[in-house]
Amino acid sequence: MLKTKSKAYWLFLAPALIGLLCVVIVPMLLGLFYSFTDWNGLFFTKSVGFSNYVAAFRDSGFLNAFWFTVKYAIAVIIAVNIIGLGLALLVTQKIKGANALRTIFFMPNLIGGLILGFIWQFIFVRVFAAIGTALHIGALTGWLSNPQTGFWGLVILTIWQMSGYIMLIYIAYLEAIPREIIEAAEIDGTSPWQRFRYITFPMVAPAFTVSLFLTLSNGFKVYDQNLSLTNGGPYLSTQMLSMNIVRTAFTNNKLAYGEAKAIIFFLVVAAISLLQVYFSRKREENLS
């Protein structure tokens, strides 16, 4: 057993610690420092106090991106978890080809976000339009050309990508439920819904913690899908936080300002995630 006192303990930990220090902690502190200056990527001339942060909260582009991201994250969390759990329930039934279905549902997750975005852009813009024109369904034409379809396009893409992954987590928990409990409940004459509500559901509750955390943080951090599907358009209405930050820093070349936005972004995501994990843990404890 390694003790914190022993040299070996720290020696084995050193590579990871140094890595963390070099690529996370130091850049983060530097970034925090730069966000209080007028840094332009090369040098800074003065400290500007909190003015970058104040400007961020007055920046309508940033606030719009913020709300858009929040709306998107909520839609994604709900949809991905329901569909993920649904798929998991489906493939854990005794149906033919359950294993093949698992693979198929998981597959979209193996494709990179950028490519997924381009695939779905093709589907929304060309395939939808072709079907819409052929069947005279107006709702299918003009996708991604207005804010609403841009929003739902992004949500659909994310559901398609994430559901399979979340499904795997639910499967792991579903399969861990002892058969005898279910059987006992069957003998007691419960309906399938009752079994789901009172046995399955509480027993996969820990999976919710993991899945909600994953979908939430992923929902907030989306960039590549956003870039390739809508690129923030039309008129920046589907621009998410990450994209707004990248553009501020690298397109508009306000690096210190972008840094300040990134710090705000980090704090918000960290706060939401920690709160969410805290409450979910508490719930689990109450259940057990």
Binding site: G61, G233, P234, Y235, L236, R247, T251, N252, N253, K254
Partner: peptide, 14 residues
């Protein structure tokens, strides 16, 4: 800088 990206560009699209 950023006039096109944040103002004229989105406005023309609007």
């Amino acid at each position: 800088v950023s006039w096109e990206a944040d103002t004229l560009g989105p406005d023309v699209q609007k």
